[in-house]
């Protein structure tokens, strides 16, 4: 684990890798909305970029429930991320399975199976909520939170207005 920044700030840049583990794709769409010009300034200000390879990523965003078919591949991707790393479970499916829970094709939700550091609820969560969760994960990487801290954010409004505040 790298030494945290002297002021406890987040790392200079954080590279984020989104990973679909199953599901309907709404969380992924919400996540990729962050690539729109609307969020470019905020991403640049927080030093958040999207990595192309797990080797280059600091934070892994897990979208969707964990299908049994995807489990082995997802584990390989997680192992490919070098330490220090943080896992963010994005959306209700990643936390509880949501509408898919009980399906015979699903295993334990990624948040529990992979011991995610940050969870953000919502179906799907808004892009700004996801951004806040990434920032929280970046803070964890910097060591400014306790090692086992897990923040649960509830999207107060499933409509994407981009203005809601994350709540704990």
């Amino acid at each position: 684990m790298s030494a945290p920044d002297a002021t406890g700030r987040a790392p200079a840049t954080v590279a984020v890798l989104p990973l679909e583990t199953g599901g309907c794709g709404a969380c992924a769409q919400s996540l990729y909305a962050l690539l729109a010009p609307r969020y470019a300034a905020e991403l640049a200000a927080q030093g958040i970029t999207f990595a192309r390879s797990p080797r280059h990523a600091d934070i892994l965003l897990l979208c969707g429930p964990m299908t049994t078919a995807a489990r082995a591949a997802v584990r390989r991707v997680v192992e490919a991320l070098p330490e220090p790393r943080a896992l963010v479970a994005v959306g209700d499916c990643a936390i509880t399975g949501c509408v898919f829970s009980g399906s015979p094709y699903l295993g334990i939700p990624p948040a529990d199976d992979l011991d995610a550091n940050v969870e953000i609820a919502g179906c799907p969560p808004s892009p700004s909520s996801i951004l806040a969760a990434i920032a929280e994960a970046a803070q964890l990487l910097a060591g400014s939170s306790a090692t086992d801290a897990a923040g649960a954010y509830e999207a107060t409004d499933d409509e994407d207005d981009g203005e809601e505040e994350p709540t704990r």
């Binding site: 790298s2 030494a3 790392p11 200079a12 840049t13 470019a40 300034a41 640049a44 030093g47 080797r55 490919a80 070098p82 330490e83 220090p84």
Partner: peptide, 23 residues
């Protein structure tokens, strides 16, 4: 028409990268 990354941030990023696991 993108934003230019602060060079100090890039340098700090390299320093952080040096501390990460080399898999």
């Amino acid at each position: 028409r993108a934003t230019v990354e602060n060079p100090m941030r890039a340098i700090r990023g390299l320093r952080t990268a040096l501390d990460r696991d080399a898999l």
